[in-house]
Nucleic acid binder design. Structure first.
Lengths: 207, 207
DNA sequence: GAAGATGGTGTGGTCTGACCACTAAAAAAC
DNA sequence: GTTTTTTAGTGGTCAGACCACACCATCTTC
């Protein structure tokens, strides 16, 4: 009879409800018991739907308080998928390559978008204290001003971590050289500095 | 007491179980009742974990049969996230920008990786019948030989679709020009052709 | 009056037991 | 040997019962 699983129907209803009431991040949604009554389904079915949305990072539940729409930034979904997806060696190479490509795009965005002042600020930050590689690029990301792109990079960073490669340590000068090129707004020089930082062949036969 | 929610613990256990037994796509996992017993939790908690994984597209349940590990390719997860994430205008711009950047990377990969023969084959395909934009880039993706990157593009493509922009129709000549540049292995010319195809400013102030 | 203690109410978190619908394999009937 | 029937196992759903926790109005104490 009921071919469509109830919990999926509830997910759908919730989406519509959210859209209809124009609920936004941080808003509260009806309680499990109320949803159960309103939709004429068991509370456990409601919970199954909510747990699914929770694991997706779309909602947040707080005991004693309620269920809230979440700010999707930082979905832990990634870790989950990561451990499932990364299996063979080829996939690992793909991760590295993709991360490098994305980071170069990031640099291009920064080149076209960030004003000199911001980059100079980053420069003094690098000089002041030792940032690790992730921290450095995290700083850069914000200058790129593209949230979706940032998300993708964060995902790749996590993937990359889960590869648990030898912890390559890059020296500070490489970063400073990169920053210099950014300040000069010289794309070629910037990418060249990046390749050097990552020890990539300039011939780009392998990014 | 139990700060960690039980269903999350179950998700974790399941992952370990899958890893330990080296279960692969299509394999069956223990029944809900068995998991409930083995992990000393209620069946409803097990179900919450399973429903979450199901919505993620990681498992598949068939009534009367059991629960199976799924092939993640083609996860419907994307549509879900899409409708939730794409809200404000800035996010839309980010999607467009990111998609363009990714596609340019794709072209770079193809430049460095695909042999002329493959590109020529694509050329005759374009000449033979009208491909729409997605189909064209889908063909290109395969030449790039990076599965992770392909996945990212596919997601972006879906996001892009859900923006429901006016259905821009590009003319065939633009594609042919792009292909010519690829055959010549001329990066600058290739990217230039791409920008023209997408009506992007050559000055790259906005990719 | 102000600060702290108390208890009520509503919320999510979990478990249990009971059905139902369905599938596949075993058993029975032919 | 083939077909039909039964049966055991599985996911799907519901209802009810507690628990743990957060919030707030109320009461107590100083």
């Amino acid at each position: 009879m009921t071919n469509t699983k109830v919990y999926l129907e509830i997910v759908k209803q919730l989406r519509e409800m959210i859209a209809a009431d124009n609920l936004k991040s941080g808003d509260k949604i009806p309680s499990e018991r109320e949803l159960s009554e309103r939709l004429n389904v068991g509370r456990s079915s409601v919970r199954e739907a909510l747990r699914a949305l929770e694991l997706l990072g779309l909602i947040e539940t707080r005991r004693g308080e309620g269920t809230f729409i979440r700010d999707f930034r930082g979905n832990q979904l990634v870790q989950l998928l990561g451990t499932f997806i990364l299996q063979d060696e080829k996939a690992k190479l793909d991760v590295i390559e993709t991360k490098n490509l994305i980071e170069m795009d990031l640099l291009r965005l920064v080149l076209n978008r960030a004003d000199e002042q911001q980059v100079v600020k980053l420069k003094s930050l690098v000089k002041a204290k030792q940032l690790n590689d992730d921290q450095f690029f995290y700083e850069l990301i914000e200058l790129a001003d593209n949230y979706l792109f940032s998300r993708i990079w964060l995902i790749l960073k996590d993937y990359h971590h889960s590869l648990s490669l030898q912890n390559e340590e890059y020296n500070r000068d490489s970063y400073l050289m990169l920053i210099e090129a950014l300040i000069e707004k010289d794309e070629e020089k910037t990418l060249s500095a990046y390749r050097q930082l990552r020890n990539l062949s300039i011939l780009t036969d392998k990014y």
